[in-house]
Design a protein around this nucleic acid. Structure first.
Lengths: 193, 193
DNA sequence: GTCTATAGTGTGATAGAC
DNA sequence: GTCTATCACACTATAGAC
């Protein structure tokens, strides 16, 4: 791993744990085990390094979500696979948590990958649900866009509830709830959600 | 307004805007228009002041939510009233945003009011849905706990999506989605969600 | 390309005058 | 009760040696 890569990885971890405001260059350097000079040689500063880290994290999250969503089965099965995939719930979403960071939201360059990732996810799920509707997998009138937004929001909000409770339980309950509501709209032999 | 109250109000605003880590005593004092001595006279430090501010914010949020949830109508109507109540969506939830602040979550005293508020909200909505089930307002098998968690998570996650997009639209879409899923479970003449 | 040294500013808290 | 002065330390960035 190059010095540059080590810096990006350390930044990714710290942004996830502490956010942008809560992460100092000093902490990044200590975790990466490099001196200050290296950071300012490879990057123009904290924001530039954060941008590289956020872009990488967004890329990883997108790939992970797409794997779960691209599996076999009905639209409902694929959304279920996404919702029930393994997660380190108490750590929260490395992309979503950045939206609570005013310095990230205020900087268009930093906000863009955050927006693009969540927007892509919403659109991906909406597309799957729309296909499901066209195939008659759901009863008439299911709102693919609204449902997709609710699914993504449930995950993001589930992290909030779990971190407040210091327990993954509220996350799991919320996921169970939205899955149950969705499964009730599926036609055919109702799978136990 | 007393000096102490001014300090708490300034802290509430700043915690909402910038979180605990992103808020300095200096910023609080400037906004409140008082000197440093006043703060350390009334409070032991930043955390103590934040605790007073968080408790007050939690109290306000609980009252606001309870007003919307205590209205007339069916269980579905009351949850709808809560979901559709006016919100400054792009500011996010003043309680929920604190869960992304590692220093808040790490301090049991600061985390407690955050947890209690969100847990109360979940329980309140679950109770309303349970009553609705008992009155036959929903078709059999609606999961009150799961649905309530999904409703609260959708709101919290809706803020995340809205802030990422710098637009309230994704929040509104998610709320429409979860409401549509819930309304489909209501018996009788389906109200257009 | 990486290091240490240094600078200037801000943070969170204390001391002591009024 | 409120103010200003001061403290020790951390933050972000730059300079310049190696």
């Amino acid at each position: 791993m190059t010095t540059s890569e080590r810096l990006v990885e350390s930044t990714r971890e710290l942004l996830w744990e502490r956010g942008f405001t809560g992460t100092s260059p000093k902490a990044i350097l200590q975790r990466a085990g490099v001196g200050q000079g290296s950071m300012y040689h490879h990057f123009t500063g904290k924001s530039d390094l954060a941008l590289a880290a956020i872009r990488r994290t967004a890329e990883v999250m997108r790939a992970t979500a797409d794997t779960a969503l691209s599996g076999e089965g009905s639209a409902c099965d694929r959304v279920r696979a996404y919702l029930l995939r393994e997660r380190d719930v108490l750590r929260g979403c490395p992309v979503g948590r950045l939206t609570m960071d005013p310095d990230v939201i205020a900087d268009p360059a930093l906000r863009q990958p955050v927006f693009e990732t969540l927007d892509w996810l919403r659109g991906r799920i909406a597309g799957i649900l729309r296909e499901g509707c066209e195939r008659g997998e759901f009863d008439a009138g299911l709102d693919p866009e609204g449902t997709a937004a609710a699914v993504v929001a449930t995950v993001q909000g589930g992290y909030v509830l779990a971190r407040a409770a210091e327990s993954p339980a509220p996350f799991d309950t919320a996921v169970r709830g939205v899955l149950s509501l969705l499964a009730a709209r599926a036609t055919g032999p109702a799978p136990t959600a």
